[in-house]
Design a binder for these strands. Structure first.
Ligand code: FES
Ligand code: FES
Lengths: 144, 144
DNA sequence: ATAAATTAGGACAATTTTGTCCGATTTAAT
DNA sequence: ATTAAATCGGACAAAATTGTCCTAATTTAT
């Protein structure tokens, strides 16, 4: 579904959001630990997210990553996915034709666009804030 | 969503089904041409499908691939996907945790399983026969 | 000023996926 | 029997993705 980079990106964003809500900034090292991801690879993903204004990175000693409270409730899951995986999720054809195209549809087009519309709807209606709920009470997990 | 191998596999199966309904067997070369896929790579995918009894391969001169009429209406899209991509579609976690697990869910689990259930339902309710409809009248395409 | 802790970024390496090549095997036609 | 047309299967190659390493730059604390 999503690339590894994107999966790490989402998990990282959720963790940063969680800690930002608690008022603390987190380091790359801590993030990678808490979401169980390769440190250096996660660094690249975070750079990408930082460039796309999903997370804010602060350099130097006592630096790290954070997300403003306002952004936590504004940023949609769809934005994170788009920042890393681009719009393949939306524009790709289920059978791999150059581009999904209703004028010259593939044999699964009609069935596929329905599923995708619901996926799109889900991604666009889920905020970072939504995804942090449940983590505190261990109703959900970012690693296992 | 699906791997390239799987995309080619689905398109190939649909084309073979189409021709089998017309009573003609098709060669690898013709398949690759009609679905616009790399010949040798498609051969591997067809071997896989043959081993999984999705398509029937006939060796030798005047050989090729075919699917029995009975199977065309029985084979589900889900079986083709499973034969090539395995069950990642069903068992994978949206955020990349080892395995989707309702007891220790990731933050998108509840939203994700819904989408997946609909995808699963679609894959399991779409037959090869369903996907051949529309191709003759060029209402749908296997290449562009 | 210096040291320590941190992110940024480039180069590289490993792995997986995708794709190619070629000889072996099978079958049908001559 | 020989030849031609086809799939099979192993080895290889290319490309994309995933992951690592190291140095530079930035900021804070001493
Ligand atoms: S054309 Fe294939 S999904 Fe739309
Ligand atoms: S645990 Fe992540 S989707 Fe089920």
């Amino acid at each position: 579904m999503f690339s590894k980079a994107c999966e790490y990106g989402i998990r990282a964003s959720i963790y940063i959001a969680l800690k930002s809500l608690e008022g603390t900034r987190v380091s790359l090292k801590e993030i990678a630990e808490k979401i169980d991801s390769p440190v250096a690879f996660t660094a690249k993903v975070l750079q990408q997210l930082s460039k796309n204004d999903i997370v804010e990175s602060i350099k130097g000693s006592s630096g790290g990553f954070e997300i403003s409270k306002n952004n936590i409730s504004q940023i949609k899951l769809s934005q994170i996915v788009y920042a890393i995986d681009g719009n393949n999720v939306y524009e790709g054809c289920g059978l791999g034709l150059k581009r999904c195209n209703a004028k010259e549809p593939c044999p699964v087009h009609n069935r596929f666009v329905q599923i995708r519309a619901e996926l799109k709807n889900m991604l666009e209606s889920t905020t970072l804030y939504d995804m942090t709920m449940g983590l505190e009470q261990e109703l959900t997990y970012l690693r296992r």
